[in-house]
Design a protein around this nucleic acid. Structure first.
Lengths: 246, 246
DNA sequence: TAGATTGTTAATCGATTAACAATC
DNA sequence: TAGATTGTTAATCGATTAACAATC
């Protein structure tokens, strides 16, 4: 009862001072209670911030201002501050941001303070390459098993990770908590296998097959379409040649 | 002289009919002469249109309306029409779009009617995986040579493509027309090697090293940052769990 | 305290969607 | 011709940038 009264007094005060009623209440709702939706554009930039902060950390840089960081990253300081303030105030007026703290906090936002179990489906060249990539483990992503349909690949071991026959996948997924399934297989097989994996309890798909997967909205899908990336490159190349010819 | 007079008459006519002076001339400038800048968002979507049209083509679909396509691709029909009309009118009122024609035209816009010579720098797992990927050739991207610093990899042959010692790269690039260099090497070495490649005449870089390359603006760089893609996935996963807990 | 730099509001810019006349 | 669907303008929406008061 006294709390409510106090809030009302604060509101009154703010109303008079800023001509802006319910400011205090509104802010609380926005950030703490409502958890407003973050735009895709912001999320796309977060890993890049994380990478730059990691690089600074390696160089033992202790603090950085949004202006300095903006010059390194070739974005505006405004955008950096705006982006970060979606998640909270990580800086300090007159000082800037503490590099280690901000790095850690963005890591938490990205979910890098968790551990993730992955399986790779498709032990072809790309699947093997990803299994060999040790950097993922540093961020908490662990490849637990690889599956393939080709008997010649079954039994292989990559960095201690076994390649099993695809028929064993259902049991494995049901017995183990698999957070992420990496699909490095032909596009014809991807939709069916993805759908099964989800049925068996996999929560997210890192999809390298050149097709869009239409799964239940609660399933997280992140696509890596290499061919599309290469096409964008060739678009830019042709554009360049066109302007040269003028 | 008569041409100019005719144009002026058309202008006059349009001015009276549409109360919109110089419409004819303006359109010509916009699309044919001026070649207005296409936004990144549009270019990002082009390869996806290309892929869907390719799929339709395989299923022998002859025509498609923006509405039908929009339902398949889960975008708005408006966006499709708006996107395509950046490059020209490919459709026909009352009919829609001819799938094969549109596919070919988007291919041309993406520069897929050209051939590109590529080299891969870094014959590790990812480099080898990309060298083995035959689908690129179908689109006109040819891997001519692979280079590595590791003597144990030098001499290897992948699909007939030789792995050469990195010291031979300068000569190779200068003697052959290399359009695209694929960087699948550690981030520490990427900036220096990229800079050298550009000096020797390479026009574009497909960069898989987890770092941003700062090269002359005339050089096309397309990044594939796998780790960042995985972080976006883990962000979405944590977001999901947060909302489950509510 | 003075200077610096954030957090945040307001202004601008650009991209998406809606609407509809043109036209096949 | 009537129906369908584009190409294109206008309206809306969202994201980026600018500005500045708050404050370390």
């Amino acid at each position: 009862m006294t709390f409510r009264l106090a809030m009302q007094l604060i509101d009154l005060f703010l109303t008079i001072k800023y001509n802006n009623p319910y400011r205090f209440i509104r802010r609380k709702e926005d950030k703490v209670l409502q958890k407003k939706r973050i735009s895709k554009a912001v999320i796309d930039r977060l890993p890049r911030y994380y990478r730059y902060l990691g690089d600074l950390l390696e160089k033992d840089v202790v603090r950085i201002s949004s202006k300095e960081l903006s010059e390194k990253m070739k974005v505006t300081a405004s955008q950096i501050r705006q982006d970060l303030n979606n998640f909270g105030g990580f800086g300090q007026q007159g000082y800037g941001y503490n590099v280690e703290y901000l790095h850690t906090e963005i890591g938490k936002i990205l979910g890098l303070d968790n551990k993730y179990n992955m399986i790779i489906v498709g032990a072809g060249n790309l699947g093997q390459a990803l299994a060999n990539y040790t950097d993922f483990e540093r961020r908490g992503f662990y490849v637990k098993c690889i599956f393939d349909i080709n008997p010649r690949l079954v039994g292989l071991t990559i960095r201690g990770i076994e390649v099993k026959y695809i028929d064993e996948m259902e049991e494995f997924v049901k017995l183990n908590s698999v957070d992420i399934a990496v699909l490095t297989l032909p596009k014809a097989k991807a939709p069916q296998i993805a759908s099964n994996l989800v049925k068996w309890g996999v929560k997210s798909i890192w999809n390298f097959a050149p097709t869009d997967l239409h799964l239940h909205e609660s399933v997280v899908v992140e696509n890596v379409h290499l061919e599309e990336s290469l096409m964008k490159l060739s678009y830019k190349l042709s554009e360049l040649q066109d302007s040269d010819n003028k």
